[in-house]
Design a protein around this nucleic acid. Structure first.
Length: 480
RNA sequence: GGUGGCGUGGCCGAGUGGCUUAGGCAAGGGCCUGCAAAGCCCUGUACGCGGGUUCGAUUCCCGCCGCCACCUCCA
């Protein structure tokens, strides 16, 4: 299509598709438009750093596809109803349980954690989604989809609710390479007696007689709430159409949640590859940290801030490993990422301040290598390596470096394009500190080093770093 | 127990059958500095263990050890 104007290096974008299990050229269904649906948070608890990794990676994807010349519609849902504490269709709805435990309403809890999630996304440099649909706001649509499935003969009703009968969808096991026979013979305990097959899943859960839930709705089958999986099928279809280009999520969703989404959607819509490319990111390895979730000391973006680190350092940290590889979290590694990012921003600020015209002949090779790395299944680690190579290349002028970094930051989103020299603008300026720095300069000029060092130590104690350069002295706040 | 993945120099983490010592952080040395800080330059020949294939393996195959994920809540 002549309307597509890819950034050099991005002409040949290739992505790993979990469904076909191989890297393949990215071919949009209806260029220049590209639809991306990312499984969003279940808003009953704080989103920890592992959850946020699954936000940062699709954000990179979205930026790369945008840079490839496409018009992206990015949708990510909020699960505020229907997600049970067990994928075996047993147990409570997570929101209901959280409400019961805290005394707050399910709506309040959903609102609170949705806000936290949105705020943390921004702090991690993620662009705003185009649409953020909420499951509880799409009940009629979900009921309608279940009705179609029922009319098609894919369902059965038991006391507990309406279930999808996986035996009616021959391709069911294909998506994630499941072994359905093994599931029936496994030793796991079957919670829902009436389920005909362990893989059958709830489309609509009925509220038991005598029970009143905070979140429940009338339906053709009785009062209750939607199953977890149906929301994504419904909302993705509503906002992106019957087929769309990319669906993302954590690897844990592949076998159950996404398998079920595919089953429902392909039956109702009568399409086969419902989604062009499925992308599943591997987990952040938090060690034992995530286990302490119930204690409330789970690792979240605030934890990074409390440590005096830049939230964007977590973004940088994430880009140091490939998204399909587990990444080990440690504070040592986080601090290393923080330092690296701080220096990179420093380079950007210095390059920007120097001004001048860039030389395309010098910049283009780096640009091409940078974008080519990302075009190859989002190889962010290599892209970062190219960035450092460019930054340290004496053959690039400051203007060249600035031109390159601002371009690269379209994908990285690390704040390089906003980098400013220390105390060079109103944001970092502070008359009191400027005064102290000036006093120190005066003392130095008078060879009164005792005084100048005392002032430097005092500033250092409050986190102000003095920078003496050949052209004068500036300062900056170190850490957060 | 089953399935899949991983094990790279102090740490995180790329990559490849024999040119690339990826890159970042830390460490050591140097330049700069009144001394520092910041910045810059230089430095370490690593690829879990034991076999095998091969002219040659960190990269291919087998076994072992260890770790992780999923199968059971999790992005």
């Amino acid at each position: 299509m002549s309307t597509i104007r890819p950034t050099p290096g991005l002409e040949d974008l290739r992505l790993y598709d979990s469904r076909t299990r191989r890297v393949q050229p990215f071919v949009p269904l209806a260029p220049p438009r590209v639809g991306i649906y990312s499984c969003g948070p279940t808003v009953y608890a704080p989103q920890h750093l592992g959850n946020m990794r699954s936000q940062v990676i699709p954000d990179l994807l979205r930026r790369v596809i945008t840079a490839a010349g496409y018009e992206v519609t990015y949708v990510t849902n909020i699960t505020d109803v229907g997600h049970l504490v067990s994928d075996a269709d047993d147990g409570d709805d997570k929101l209901e349980r959280a409400a019961a435990a805290t005394g707050r309403s399910a709506a309040e809890i959903a609102e609170h954690f949705t806000e936290q999630w949105a705020t943390d996304r921004r702090r991690l440099g993620c662009q705003e989604p185009d649409i953020v649909p909420r499951a509880a706001s799409h009940i009629p649509e979900q009921i309608a989809m279940v009705e179609i499935l029922q009319a098609q003969g894919h369902t059965y009703v038991v006391d507990d609710g309406v279930y999808f009968d996986v035996s009616t969808f021959p391709r069911y096991a294909e998506f994630a390479g499941l072994d359905l026979d093994e599931m029936t013979t496994s030793g796991r305990i079957e919670h829902i007696e009436a389920k005909r097959h362990p893989a059958d899943f709830a489309l609509w859960k009925l509220t038991p007689p005598g029970v009143v839930r905070q979140q429940e709705w009338d339906s053709p089958w009785g009062r209750g709430f939607p199953g977890w999986h149906i929301e994504c099928s419904t909302m993705a279809t509503k906002y992106l159409g019957e087929r769309f280009d990319i669906h993302t999520g954590g690897v844990d969703h592949q076998r159950v949640h996404h398998t079920n989404e595919v089953a429902q959607s392909e039956c109702v819509l009568d399409v086969h590859p419902w989604v062009g490319t499925w992308m599943h990111n591997e987990f952040l390895d938090l060690g034992g940290a995530k286990i302490s979730k119930s204690k409330g000391d789970v690792l979240v973006v605030d934890t990074i801030v409390e440590r005096g680190l830049d939230p964007l350092a977590f973004r940088y940290f994430t880009f140091q490993a490939h998204y399909r590889q587990q990444q080990a979290f440690s504070w040592e590694a986080m601090e290393a990422a923080n330092t690296a990012l701080r220096r990179l921003v420093g380079h950007a600020a210095v390059a920007r301040a120097a001004g001048g015209m860039s030389n395309p002949a010098a910049v283009d090779p780096y640009r091409r290598r940078f974008w080519s790395a990302l075009a190859d299944d989002l190889k962010a680690p290599q892209a970062l390596a190219v960035v450092w190579e460019a930054v340290r290349d004496p053959g690039l002028s400051s203007a060249d470096t600035w031109a390159f970094l601002t371009d690269a930051d379209r994908a990285l989103g690390l704040g390089l394009a906003d980098a400013v020299a220390p105390n060079a603008d109103e944001r970092g300026s502070d008359p009191r500190i400027d005064g102290l720095v000036a006093q120190r300069q005066a003392a130095r000029a008078a060879k009164d080093f005792a005084t100048s060092d005392r002032l430097r130590d005092a500033l250092s104690a409050e986190g102000i770093e003095i920078l003496d350069t050949p052209t004068g002295t500036t300062w900056r706040r170190s850490g957060g």
